[in-house]
Design a protein around this nucleic acid. Structure first.
Length: 799
DNA sequence: GTTGCCAAGTTTTTT
DNA sequence: ACTTGGCAAC
């Protein structure tokens, strides 16, 4: 371990520009440190500088491990570190080997590396919610239980909670007493057996199995501890029990280390919003107990928001009882009050926010800092609320982007194509195989499939192994037998019968993806569909987009980036394995672990729309929040306990504290839920903002003539005096003026402009279509005209 | 074996 | 409102 010179540290240029508290945190190098960082207090800055500073002090990059919650946050942090290390730009040599990643990715890699120790297939698939669901449904059937007594979703949620508490199927079964719980335990056990047989793990297993691996295998633990001498965890308040255990095991004990472990965690209890996913705020309290002698540093000063926004947030969060109060303060003077508006209905709500943003942008045009749509964001509690806002923005021709990173991968055609690839990587993966075996239909229907599944179960085989022995099933019709034979040989053709050594193997991941899509018949299937139904045309584009995503991944793939390449000597494992398989595996892993928040792109020139959860960690000068109503925020499902209600309040707090300069919160008097318009009740959180820093307006009766008339409910009457009536000044006159500009910004592209695509090369923009899935028709020199979904197409403008 | 229609449940947030 | 799953007709 390098000798850290404590005396010179404050002189490092890397610590310049930090406040005293920030500097204290960034330069607290050794031993356990807990940083309680209030919203907007510069915690990312502290972590970034600290890592850079460690390296400057001679700590090798590869001995540092930084954990974040989203890939996006990890990528950003890495970028910022590289910037700090070499401000002039250019390759930074220092950062090589530095691991900045998410808990889940780290675990995925650890499990890959030590698969053998756990008796796990190293080519394991990662099951997402829908894969889990289809497995559990099948098992409930096989166990002769009914899905109405055991709703698969609920069963899965019990299983997930259990795993997050580090309780595996065995332990769960041991403590299951009543009838229902015992049956759930049966399903749990069967589920784990099913996963194991399929060579698959779910999201929770990634954590649970890693915790097990580290706990039970001292050798593995030692290897990891030797490698990572310095650990950092961001958003620590959102770690669950399993993550705490993993962090704890990686950090080690003073006895194991011969010194206090260097673990540095940063969190804010007021921003804990993942309790429902098993996150446990007591991890913050337990930190000092587990890591004796931990230093605790508080960052209180806010550098993000104006005073009124901050005061409103502070006033709100004081309503949480289970909380240690810490002052939020800013030295920034001035700032306008927070706007709260009661609107007629959800369309009116979206309209008002749109006008508001447009007016702010206009007003700033002549100032020293002109704003653009890029500076605006709209947050909502549930994804369903985005639609109306989208509609309104589209009508007003305002460019916008919906942050939903997982949406692409959940489309039917993409899921199917990926299922094919998963079968190529791991033919034991029954859930994926079942998805593709008759998609598109190839004559292996219910009857044939039943026989094959029986045969598999009877011989203890995976389904694919049963397919290979289809000839032994006499009941199978010759026709089906033929289809099966053909299917098996197609798959064999793709993966060299599982060995990836066959002569006809495709040379690249892109080729493989392309071949799978055509040779599986998916392409012609969707082509036929598209000919019948225009709405299906997207699917072909999406499949093409998947191929480019694979191509892009391949281009950026560097096996040396794998955090498990401990060093050339230790890495031994896997050096002579087929490159193609490693690549495919890494690709499938990367698509399995995308998060919604990963799709945030600050360069689009568009308003950003996202859930409050996805907004964590971000900031925008102009923020709108919709749906400040009871049963929306706080959500109707969060009314059963104080804990849930307080989490909703923190969620609201997170939204407010994203705003730097302007904040507008709205509530609709009537909201259409599942087709029917319902009277709403204003969110209790609005009152809890206090009145001093808030400007409330009731516009629910303005522009009358639409929606039900007032007077039926008491809900708004109670607080009527808080919403003084004002006349709405429509800015629609200004709308058309900026409309053209807006739609072009949506794409960031103009017709006739030249762009570069990672795969297709240079091309000319023929036309641009805005909206939620903005597309552009582009004429490429190499491949001709293609329609691309801008969100996924990584186009670069060329001038 | 495949296709198309109707009924029912459904979504709170996400790795 | 919108998707999903089950069932009957082709």
């Amino acid at each position: 371990m390098p000798d850290l010179d404590q005396s010179t540290q404050n002189g490092s240029p890397l610590l310049e520009g930090l406040t005293d508290a920030q500097r204290a945190a960034a330069s607290a190098l050794e031993g356990p440190v807990l940083v309680l960082a209030a919203a907007g207090s510069g915690k990312t800055r502290v972590i970034t500088r600290r890592i850079a500073y460690l390296m400057e002090q001679g700590v090798p990059a590869w001995s540092i491990l930084a954990l974040t919650f989203t890939n996006k946050a990890a990528a950003e942090m890495r970028e910022r570190i590289e910037k700090v290390l070499s401000p002039a730009g250019g390759e930074s040599r220092h950062a090589r080997g530095l691991v900045v990643t998410t808990f889940h990715s780290l675990c995925a890699r650890l499990l890959r590396r030590y698969a053998e120790v756990l008796g796990l297939n190293p080519d394991y698939s990662i099951y997402d919610t829908s894969d889990q669901l289809s497995l559990v449904k099948r098992l409930i059937g096989e166990l002769d239980l009914s899905t109405s007594n055991f709703p698969p979703r609920q069963v899965l949620s019990v299983i997930s909670n259990s795993k997050n508490q580090l309780v595996d199927a065995e332990m769960f079964a041991a403590s299951a007493m009543d009838f229902s719980t015992r049956n759930i335990a049966k399903i749990f056990t069967a589920y784990q057996r099913g996963l194991k047989k399929a060579g698959a793990v779910d999201f929770d297993d990634l954590l649970l199995l890693t915790a097990k691996l580290l706990r039970e295998h001292a050798q593995v633990r030692r290897e990891c501890q030797d490698r990572w001498q310095w650990m950092m965890i961001d958003e620590y308040q959102d770690t669950n029990r399993a993550q705490f255990e993993i962090a704890s095991l990686l950090a080690g004990t003073p006895e194991e280390r011969g010194a206090k472990p260097n673990i540095f965690v940063v969190g804010d209890p007021d921003q804990a919003i993942y309790g429902w996913r098993g996150a446990d705020i007591s991890n913050i309290l337990d930190f000092e107990e587990r890591f004796q002698g931990a230093r605790v540093i508080a960052l209180g000063e806010n550098f993000r928001s104006t005073a009124p926004i901050l005061s409103a947030a502070d006033t709100l969060i004081r309503n949480n009882r289970q909380r240690k109060h810490k002052d939020l303060f800013t030295k920034r003077p001035g700032g306008e009050r927070v706007t709260v508006t009661l609107t007629r209905d959800e369309r009116h709500e979206a309209e008002i926010l749109t006008d508001w943003m447009r007016d702010l942008i206009q007003a700033s045009a002549d100032g020293d800092r002109p704003m653009t749509w890029n500076d605006c964001a709209v947050f909502y509690r549930t994804n369903a609320l985005s639609r109306v806002v989208e509609d309104q923005l589209r009508r007003a021709q305002v460019p916008y982007v919906v942050v939903r990173g997982t949406a692409f991968y959940q489309r039917e055609e993409i899921k199917t194509a990926l299922a094919y690839l998963r079968v190529v990587a791991n033919s034991d993966d029954d859930v994926s195989l079942l998805r593709v075996i008759n998609t598109p239909t190839r004559g292996i229907g219910k009857a044939a499939l039943g026989l094959l599944q029986n045969f598999a179960a009877g011989h203890g085989l995976s389904l694919f192994a049963a397919l290979r022995r289809a000839d032994e099933i006499s009941a199978l019709s010759p026709r089906a037998r033929n289809s099966v034979r053909e299917f098996v040989s197609t798959v064999d053709h793709w993966n060299g019968a599982g060995s990836f050594m066959g002569a006809s193997l495709p040379g690249s991941l892109r080729d493989l993806a392309e071949r799978v899509i055509t040779e599986s018949g998916l392409e012609s299937h969707y082509k036929a569909q598209a000919a019948k139904n225009e709405a299906e045309e997207d699917r072909l584009d999406n499949l093409a987009e998947l191929v480019s995503s694979a191509a892009e991944f391949e281009e950026n793939y560097d096996p040396a980036d794998d955090p498990m390449q401990f060093d050339a000597a230790v890495a031994g494992v896997g050096t002579d394995e087929p490159h193609m398989l490693a690549l495919l595996r890494a690709y499938l892993e990367s698509v399995a672990l995308v998060a919604d928040a990963d799709a945030v792109d600050s360069e689009t020139g568009a308003v950003t729309l996202m859930t409050l959860h996805a907004a964590k960690g971000l900031e925008f000068p102009i923020v709108g929040m919709v749906g400040l109503e009871e049963n929306v925020l706080p959500h109707s499902r969060a009314h059963t306990s104080d804990q849930e209600l307080e989490e909703e309040r923190r969620l609201c707090f997170v939204g407010i504290t994203r705003a730097m300069e302007h904040l507008h919160m709205t509530a609709a008097k009537y909201r259409t839920v599942r087709g029917i318009s319902e009277r709403t009740i204003a969110s209790r959180f609005l009152e809890e903002l206090g009145s001093e820093h808030v400007h409330m307006t009731d516009r629910s009766d303005s522009l009358g003539g639409y929606g039900p008339s007032t007077g039926t409910g008491e809900s708004w009457e109670d607080s009527a005096n808080q919403f003084p009536q004002t006349r709405s000044i429509s800015s629609s006159a200004r709308q058309s003026q900026r409309a053209d500009e807006g739609s072009q910004m949506a794409a960031g592209l103009r017709e006739g402009a030249m762009v570069r695509h990672p795969r297709f090369g240079a091309g000319k923009v023929m036309s641009v279509m805005g909206g939620s899935n903005a597309r552009a028709k582009i004429d490429f020199r190499t491949v001709g005209v293609k329609t691309l979904v801008l969100e996924y197409a990584r186009l670069e403008p060329l001038d």
